[in-house]
Amino acid sequence: MSVDHATVRRIAHLARIAVTDDEVPHLAGELNALLSFVAELDQVDVAGIEPMTSVIPMKMHMRADVVTDQAGADAIVANAPVREEHFFVVPKVVE
């Protein structure tokens, strides 16, 4: 996969990062280098290796998967800068 200049501009727009036209070629090179490194990781054989939660062996603490209503919707959105009923209102990002 290769990142072109239009993709760099699109990523910058979605991330809300101001990128000048002079920075686009450098960022495209950086993103392509990152993607090629990730592609190299795909070649590693991980068959038979268990997933880790830490570099130190430890037991994962499990909790019961039960529905709780500790705070209530009104308390959760109480400090939201903008809300509508029991929902957070956020700016539209995806067109």
Rank of each mutant, 00 (worst) to 15 (best):
P51S: 10
P51E: 12
P51R: 08
M52E: 15
M52K: 14
M52F: 12
M52Q: 13
T53P: 00
T53V: 12
T53Y: 09
T53I: 14
T53K: 01
T53G: 13
S54I: 02
S54T: 02
S54Q: 09
S54F: 08
V55E: 12
V55W: 11
V55F: 15
V55P: 09
V55I: 11
V55K: 08
I56E: 09
I56S: 05
I56P: 00
I56G: 00
I56N: 04
P57D: 11
P57A: 07
P57K: 08
P57T: 02
P57I: 02
P57Q: 08
P57N: 06
P57C: 05
M58W: 04
M58K: 15
M58T: 11
M58C: 11
K59P: 00
K59N: 06
K59W: 04
K59C: 00
K59R: 15
K59H: 09
K59F: 03
M60W: 07
M60V: 13
M60K: 13
H61Y: 10
H61N: 12
H61E: 14
H61D: 11
H61S: 14
H61F: 11
H61W: 08
M62P: 00
M62E: 15
R63A: 11
R63M: 04
R63L: 07
R63P: 00
R63S: 10
R63K: 14
R63C: 05
A64V: 12
A64W: 00
A64R: 14
A64H: 07
A64C: 02
A64M: 10
D65A: 15
D65P: 08
V66D: 03
V66S: 08
V66A: 10
V67G: 00
V67F: 13
V67S: 06
T68I: 11
T68E: 14
D69F: 03
D69H: 09
D69M: 05
Q70D: 12
Q70W: 05
Q70T: 06
Q70N: 09
Q70K: 11
Q70G: 05
Q70P: 02
Q70Y: 07
Q70M: 04
Q70F: 03
A71I: 05
A71Y: 14
A71M: 10
A71F: 13
A71V: 05
G72V: 06
G72N: 03
G72R: 06
A73K: 07
A73Y: 03
A73T: 09
D74C: 01
D74T: 05
D74W: 03
A75M: 02
A75E: 08
A75Y: 01
A75Q: 07
A75I: 00
I76A: 10
I76N: 06
I76G: 04
V77D: 01
V77E: 00
A78P: 00
A78C: 04
A78L: 07
A78Y: 03
A78R: 13
A78N: 06
N79R: 15
N79H: 13
N79F: 06
N79L: 12
N79E: 13
A80N: 05
A80V: 06
A80T: 05
P81I: 01
P81Q: 10
P81S: 12
P81A: 13
P81H: 08
V82C: 04
V82A: 13
R83K: 15
R83P: 01
R83L: 04
R83S: 14
R83Q: 13
E84L: 08
E84W: 07
E84P: 00
E85W: 01
E85F: 02
E85T: 04
E85Q: 09
